[in-house]
Amino acid sequence: MLTSAINLILAGTNLSRLIEGLGVTIEISFLSIFFGTILGGFLGLLWSNVTGVERGFFRTYLEIFRIVPTIPLLFLFYYTFPRDLNFNLPATVVSVLVFSLWFGAEFSDIVRAAVQSVAKGQKESAYAIGLTTWQSYRYVLLPQSLVNILPAYINLSTRIIKTTSILLLISVTEVITVGQQIIEANSSNRAVPLVVYGLIALFYFSINGTLTWLSKKIERKVVANDR
């Protein structure tokens, strides 16, 4: 049964369709990470340098995206907003929008924490030799926070990639949706779901596992550098 199921998946266009679906998953993840990085980097730098009311604004943005699970966010942007505000966006665009906002919120916090964790003396030294705020970010604070940001950044990216799995709820033809279609077309073989979902798990595992491995490697290097 299992062997025939494996053969079934390898036969015909099944595997290439799955990989195509994986392409959609990767594309949405990549675009979300790209836009989220710009958004979060910008907000995080601003955030690291403000106090009072402005800080409250950043905190609120972050907490909303932390508290509300991703599924209602997705539905809000997919069903509610388009109808109430009278616009129409394809599901893929909505996905990228929601994930970018989410990534941006989380990333801004990472950037803020990293910049603020650079020792106070560094900021004062930069000031004492006359650097402007922008110059002290450019030459002193950012280069030092970058190595601290990278592991958390990669970790956040793997989270985005995993979360794209819920896109099957809003009819984006990503890898799991394709998997379901293949399972439906081959419903006579009861071992097909095991093989299909096992394979998809392997896809995710390869991508995220590589990223995690990379971030661990960077982290070790950072620790070694600090000594």
Binding site: A119, L131, Q135, V140
Partner: peptide
């Protein structure tokens, strides 16, 4: 000019880069 107790050199820059940052950029 100011020199601090904890020196606070910029760890991401060499000695020369630490020294020349101010005169070149400021």
């Amino acid at each position: 000019g100011m020199v601090f107790q904890s020196y606070d050199l910029f760890p991401n820059r060499t000695v020369m880069q630490n020294i020349t940052l101010g005169p070149l950029k400021v």
